[in-house]
């Protein structure tokens, strides 16, 4: 299983990478949406993408819209992992094509439970 982690915070990238690696994922990371799109072009298709909302150059919302507009990535599971905690943002992310939404702060159990919802791992 492969995962793409997109976050401008090195700490969050490290934490998510550790959690996912512990669940058996091979993890590739990117610091913003633009770099994530470049990684998608050159790396093997991920089974899961976790993306932050607020990032420089291209934010997570714009990234999800770009990914969903491309038929190659239309079905790829994407979870927004963000400090945005208002209902309006959850609605926007889902409407843009996010499959799940996890609010920061999170625990490893929460990540695992969300993956179970996505049918990717047992919670």
């Amino acid at each position: 299983m492969r995962a793409l982690v997109v976050d401008d915070s090195a700490v969050i990238r490290t934490v998510l990478t550790r959690i996912l690696a512990g669940l058996g994922f091979e993890v590739v990371s990117a610091v913003n949406g633009k770099e994530a799109l470049e990684k998608l072009e050159v790396c093997k298709r991920p089974d899961l993408t976790l993306v932050d909302w607020n990032m420089p150059e291209m934010n997570g919302y714009e990234f999800i819209r770009a990914v969903r507009a491309d038929t190659r990535w239309r079905d790829m599971p994407i979870m927004m992992v963000t400090t945005e905690t208002e209902m309006e943002q959850v609605v926007r992310a889902l409407a843009a094509g996010a499959n799940e939404y996890l609010m920061k702060p999170f625990t490893p159990e929460m990540v695992q439970e969300k993956l179970a919802i996505l049918g990717i791992a047992q919670g």
Binding site: M87, E100, M103, F106, E109, E113
Partner: peptide
């Protein structure tokens, strides 16, 4: 709480059945 709705609740159900009240 936010931590509780983060646990096991699919986001589409959060949107459909919950209302944000303060935090």
């Amino acid at each position: 709480s936010q931590l509780e709705v983060n646990r096991g609740l699919p986001a589409p159900l959060l949107v459909k059945y919950f209302t944000k009240r303060g935090i």
